[in-house]
């Protein structure tokens, strides 16, 4: 794969990720049925529920992992891709890329949480957990930003327009 193709794939993945970020956060990720009441929960709704029950450290962890991290990841990748070929802030772009890479996997917390809740929440009308389309979009955002970072190799930050790309 040429570097030009890598750049294009990375751009396509980031754009897709940004588009999917909207339904991932607007649509419910799951519906919880508790003793007859059906409650759809978005990612943010799940955080709120934790906060309301007084568990704010846990609410903070989930908020950071599933809302802030995916957003930061998409934003930083967009910036890095937009700056491609420029000789400015190359070192900073490299550092940012590494930071984003190391915190990126934490957003999987929400997907795992959905899997665990779906597995034990099969007690009929008393307590039921059903996955909803939001979960699909959320997982898609994760995969898109992961692939984007995979396509755009760190060495490509150091290519400038004056120097022909390999």
């Amino acid at each position: 794969m040429t570097d030009a193709a890598r750049l294009q794939w990375a751009q396509a993945m980031v754009v897709t990720g940004i588009v999917l970020y909207v339904p991932a956060n607007v649509l419910p990720v799951m519906t919880m049925t508790v003793v007859g009441t059906v409650e759809p929960l978005t990612v943010l709704g799940g955080v709120e529920e934790l906060y309301d029950s007084g568990l704010w450290p846990m609410a903070a962890v989930v908020f950071l992992a599933s809302i802030v991290v995916p957003f930061l990841k998409l934003a930083s990748l967009s910036w890095i891709l937009l700056m491609h070929g420029s000789p400015l802030a190359q070192r900073r772009r490299g550092t940012l890329r590494r930071v984003v890479h190391s915190i990126g996997s934490w957003s999987m917390v929400d997907v795992f949480l959905l899997a665990i809740l779906a597995a034990v929440g099969q007690l009929g009308a008393l307590a039921g957990v059903k996955a909803e389309p939001g979960g699909f979009f959320f997982a898609a955002v994760l995969v898109c930003s992961l692939l984007a970072a995979e396509f755009y190799k760190p060495r490509m930050i150091w290519q400038t327009n004056s120097e022909p790309t390999r």
Binding site: M32, V34, G46, E49, L50, S53, L55, M58, V61, V62, A65, S105, W106, M108, V109, D110, F112, L113, I116, L117, V120, G121, L123, L126, A127
Partner: peptide, 20 residues
């Protein structure tokens, strides 16, 4: 991502504790 799964388990237990 097993460490992340471990965190998710803790969050899941906290959530389920509200239901049963």
């Amino acid at each position: 991502l097993v460490p992340v799964y471990a965190i998710a388990t803790v969050v899941a237990v906290v959530k389920l504790d509200m239901m049963g």
